[in-house]
Simulated scan of single mutants.
Amino acid sequence: MKSKQVTISIFLFFIAGLCEIGGGYLVWLWLRDSFAWWVGAIGGFILFLYGIVPTFQKATFHRIYAAYGGVFVVMSILWGWLIDNTPPDSYDVIGTIVAVVGVLIIYYYPRKEEKIWNS
């Protein structure tokens, strides 16, 4: 995989993560913290966008979503730390490292049978 392709895929994972976590957070605020209904509606729309963003990845559905699970772990821990002011503990850090290793193996390990990156 070329460095430009890796950069694009990481960017897409990041945008998808922001959409899922940000949209979910707005729905959370609406339902759990009694924010206005329109906050939840905006969150729902952002979650809809999350469903679209991964389709731009150049891989199969199952690998994209499996790898995104690891990206979601990393971004959720960072969101909690930066937005909710809840610093990660050592178990959060260890779990995040395991998730990142999983993403690298599932998504970025070269496979000969897939030629979708040549397009």
Score class of each variant (00 low, 15 high):
Met1Tyr: 08
Lys2Met: 04
Ser3Tyr: 09
Ser3Gly: 00
Lys4Arg: 03
Gln5Cys: 03
Val6Ser: 02
Phe13Asn: 01
Ile15Cys: 08
Gly22Ile: 13
Gly23Thr: 12
Tyr25Trp: 15
Tyr25Ser: 03
Tyr25Leu: 08
Leu26Thr: 03
Trp30Ile: 00
Phe35Met: 12
Phe35Leu: 06
Trp37Pro: 00
Trp37Val: 12
Gly40Trp: 08
Gly40Asn: 04
Gly40His: 08
Ala41His: 06
Ala41Thr: 14
Ile42Ala: 15
Gly43Gln: 08
Gly43Val: 04
Ile46Pro: 05
Val53Pro: 00
Pro54Met: 03
Phe56Gly: 05
Lys58Pro: 08
Tyr65Trp: 11
Ala66Asn: 09
Val71Leu: 10
Ser76Gln: 13
Ile77Ser: 04
Leu78Ser: 14
Trp79Val: 07
Trp81Pro: 05
Trp81Asp: 02
Leu82Val: 15
Leu82His: 09
Asn85Phe: 12
Asn85Tyr: 06
Thr86Cys: 09
Pro87Gly: 11
Asp89Asn: 15
Tyr91Gln: 13
Tyr91Asp: 11
Gly95Leu: 07
Val98Cys: 07
Val100Ile: 14
Val101Gly: 05
Gly102Tyr: 01
Val103Trp: 00
Arg111Ile: 06
Arg111Trp: 02
Lys112Arg: 13
Lys112His: 07
Glu114Arg: 15
Ile116Val: 12
Ser119Ile: 05
